[in-house]
Write a protein that binds this DNA or RNA. Sequence first.
DNA 1: ATAAACCTTTACGCAACGTCAATGTACAGA
DNA 2: TCTGTACATTGACGTTGCGTAAAGGTTTAT
Lengths: 252, 252
Amino acid sequence: MEYTVKQLAELTGVTTRTLRYYNEIGLLMPAKINSSGYRIYGEKEVDKLQQILFYRELGVDLDTIKKIINSPSFDSMKALKEHREKLLAKRRQLDSLIANVEKTIAAKEGRITMNDKEKFEAFKQKLIEENERKYGYEVREKYGDEIVDRSNQKLKNMTKEQFEQLKQLEEEVLNTLNKAFVTGDPASELAQKAADLHRQWLCYFWDHYTKEAHRGVTEMYVADERFKAYYDKKHLGAAEFLRDAVRIYTMN
Amino acid sequence: MEYTVKQLAELTGVTTRTLRYYNEIGLLMPAKINSSGYRIYGEKEVDKLQQILFYRELGVDLDTIKKIINSPSFDSMKALKEHREKLLAKRRQLDSLIANVEKTIAAKEGRITMNDKEKFEAFKQKLIEENERKYGYEVREKYGDEIVDRSNQKLKNMTKEQFEQLKQLEEEVLNTLNKAFVTGDPASELAQKAADLHRQWLCYFWDHYTKEAHRGVTEMYVADERFKAYYDKKHLGAAEFLRDAVRIYTMN
DNA sequence: ATAAACCTTTACGCAACGTCAATGTACAGA
DNA sequence: TCTGTACATTGACGTTGCGTAAAGGTTTAT
């Protein structure tokens, strides 16, 4: 079955503008362009659009959705099951909002009293869960299930601010690593700083840091395609460079 | 209890920027400004912010929220109960999304097959319900509970496109009425056109149109403060003018 | 053959803030 | 009293995910 923009739009309930925009940002490319320049979509694109709308529904931004569905290790079945989990989480959160409303109604009727803090509990809960929904998959993709599961509890207890600090640190690691890479020397001051930042970053997840584990995890980065791709994004061989830097960092 | 921006922000989980923005657009004004120009919020503002967040949560745009909570006929208890209804509706919709995901999983596992149309049913359902959430209160405010309840089923079966047609027609009625008003003659061609448009608009809600009911409803407009205010928005006496025009319109 | 209903690209507009920048204020500790 | 830091203020420009023309080419139906 083949569809033009309008046809696909009517099928899915999005606008044609949205489809063109998704084309523009490379999120959903048409199967082909016909001789008159018309966009033609096929079965595969219908399925992909469904995935996109699933994630959009969760409040995931389009850029992240793109990464998720273009990820080589993207397992649509797994994604669907995770998606279901997230929807269920959203429903639980809705339940807490409903409870909050009912409490407010009761308070207004004079049956109970609520202090200011209580009034916003459900909203804050929502903020935290939204963060998890938005970034949970991404983190899982990047760092593997085992680590995620182990550090899950730590993450769950993080505030939004802490989470943003983590994100910032993550960028700093990458930036410093890339700067150090061009020096070519894993023993250089910059490379050692990158290793140190990486240690700090790990400590967000680990309860106790050991040099051996640190070395171990960077070796894993080199071995595992997914991790390697992440660190090699800018410079090919950056994963190996980080491993070497960390080897030196953990020697003394 | 008094709060500065930061304190209120921390209490409620919004940012200080948001509070300043809400001040800027007149959605939530501080209780007072102290001698240094600091915004100071009190109990009343905390409650109002809670209302705002409730509606924001539903996807209502800030401008509409402003109208809702500033409406003289705003009954917070009633609003809360409606809000609860909407949250429950949202949960039902979530359930249908979850069912859709589960169906997709089953389809992927080869247990059943899904055609393209089915894949998007839940999303479309969502679109319709979202429209109800966004405009439901407004419509209820404007036209009273009884009419809303009677026409509820019709509305529920509307598509987004039909809904937008309705909104457009509504504007046309007002525009034509206002133009006709300045002629001063309820028998004029323009005034009769306004009456006709108003009939068309009513037919969106009514299963069977009668001249008596049409006259009746315009008389109600004059009697009921809320309706009168709506039609008198531009020209004082427009509600009466419409009633007179419809009287003539329903004579032949 | 001509209108209606599609399609294209280009480009500006919008809500609801985020994010500086430049500057003023409150208050604790040396 | 000075100073640092954590707060506050008002601009003003940036961002996301599209909406909405504008100006034109294509397909289809009558």
